[in-house]
Design a protein around this nucleic acid. Structure first.
Length: 444
DNA sequence: AGCCTCTTGCG
DNA sequence: GCAAGAGGC
């Protein structure tokens, strides 16, 4: 029997339905390298999800997953040598933000006489492939969305255990997997089950319900997509065939298009992962209050919808999208803190934390991004709360101090119950302050 | 994927 | 008084 290949799964843990990856997996030992910096900074829910996903991948690979910790430039060649593998492949990141790391890995492998080859991306559909009439990438979502749909995308590859033949390779350097403390089911089976449940359930009414954080009205597929347990091409195929309202289907597809749009933008402009797309904001006068930042992180701002969201994030490693926008607006426009502070906090705790969607979502809210909301679009946390959580159920779920405040009162608790803080800033005043600071940079 | 203020039309 | 729409930030 020939030597096995090594397939280095990078950020993406599962094969999804990319034909190339399936081919590779038939002949490969899997390798996942834990980044100690990442695991140290992560929240418990995120780690739980990661370990669950690793366990699911290990099962899929028939127990042939190697998990190691450390610098990939050292670990990947070490494992390759120890297993005496043939080819070394890696799942492609959609974005080039790992280029320096990959170059180091490739160089170390080359010293052994081995080559690092790409093995397809389970991440997104379109990055780098949608261009406008002049052959340039889009910078605005709406025309991107049109072109993205008009382009058409291949159907997913056929998957299934039957088609996969596993090598009986002995893996000697397997790191023991931490026992998964399942917060949420990870892996391809769990993802498929969640998708089916969505198609038969919340898809009806999705266009309306997706904005209400107390309602289970979203697909909750983001973590599965981030880890490659499910491919967006599969979603496109199934949604087209679904017997549902056209508006609901269209709105869901638009969400997938946003995800691809941000992946596309980041792949063309990798520096925007942590830097302003709109360079005028490089001169923006952000504040730097650690006290305000800490209050926001802990969910003690005195604005119920903000606090509920931040507490859900800490507890679950997930936050409803509507509330992500509200909490992000509060950090950048009410506390005037740099969007990067918020983005870093989010990506450390979110189980679905994805660089492109996270950073560009933050830049959208902050007004610094490609196709961003104009800076003067400031969310009013109280009005947003009343509009999208009219019954106050979301507040009551996450802020126990406000459990006795039903309905709209939950968003303006008066009097403040013991243990619930007064607002740390005055929204009307800080809104004006934000617009003032914006005046100083706009048009320059 | 906002908010605020002002105007107008109705009564 | 109020709802609905326009326009500016």
């Amino acid at each position: 029997m020939s030597r096995p290949d090594l397939c280095w799964f990078r950020r993406d843990l599962r094969l999804a339905d990319q034909p190339m990856l399936l081919e590779v997996a038939k002949e490969a030992v899997g390798l996942f390298v834990l980044d100690p910096r990442l695991t140290r900074g992560s929240g418990q829910a995120r780690l739980d999800y990661l370990f669950s996903a690793l366990a699911a991948l290990d099962e899929t690979l028939g127990g042939r997953l190697v998990v190691a910790e450390g610098d990939p430039a050292r670990v990947v060649p070490d494992v390759a040598r120890e297993l005496n593998v043939g080819a070394v492949r890696c799942t492609e990141d959609f974005a080039p933000y790992g280029r320096a790391r990959d170059a180091a890995v490739a160089a170390a492998l080359k010293a052994q006489g081995r080559e690092l080859r790409p093995a397809g991306s389970p991440y997104a559909i379109s990055p780098g492939r949608v261009r406008n009439g002049s052959g340039n990438p889009y910078r605005v979502f709406t025309p991107f969305r049109r072109a993205w749909s008009a382009h058409g995308w291949p159907r997913p590859a056929q998957t299934g255990a039957d088609s996969t033949r596993w090598l009986a390779a002995e893996v000697s350097c397997q790191t023991e997997l931490p026992s998964p403390r399942l917060v949420r089911e990870a892996g391809e089976q769990a993802a498929a089950a969640r998708w089916t449940a969505f198609l038969e359930g919340a898809l009806a009414g999705y266009a309306q319900n997706r904005d209400f954080p107390a309602v289970d009205g979203t697909s909750r597929l983001s973590a599965h997509l981030k880890f490659g347990a499910l491919h967006p091409r599969t979603l496109l195929r199934d949604i087209a065939a679904a017997d549902a309202d056209d508006t609901d289907k269209d709105v869901f597809v638009t969400e997938l298009a946003w995800r691809d749009f941000y992946a596309d933008v980041l792949s063309h402009h990798p520096r925007t992962a942590w830097h302003n797309v709109d360079r005028r904001f490089d001169r923006f006068a952000w504040s730097d209050s650690q006290e305000h930042f800490a209050a926001w992180q802990r969910g003690e701002t005195g604005y119920p919808i903000v606090d509920a969201g931040m507490r859900q994030l800490a507890a679950e490693g997930w936050m409803h999208n509507r509330v992500r926008m509200i909490t992000a607006s509060f950090l950048t426009k009410d506390l005037h803190l740099p969007w990067q502070w918020g983005a870093r906090h989010f990506i450390r705790l979110l189980v679905d934390g994805d660089l492109a969607s996270n950073s560009h979502g933050w830049q959208w809210t902050a007004g610094t991004g490609t196709d961003a909301a104009p800076y003067f679009r400031v969310f009013n946390p109280t009005a947003q709360g009343k509009k999208f959580d009219p019954g106050g159920e979301y507040i009551q779920r996450w802020v126990p101090q406000l459990r006795d405040m039903p309905g709209p009162k939950a968003h303006e608790p008066n009097p403040r119950p013991a243990g619930y803080p007064p607002p740390i800033v005055d929204h009307a005043q800080e809104r004006a302050e934000a617009l003032l600071r914006y005046e100083a940079v706009k048009g320059r």
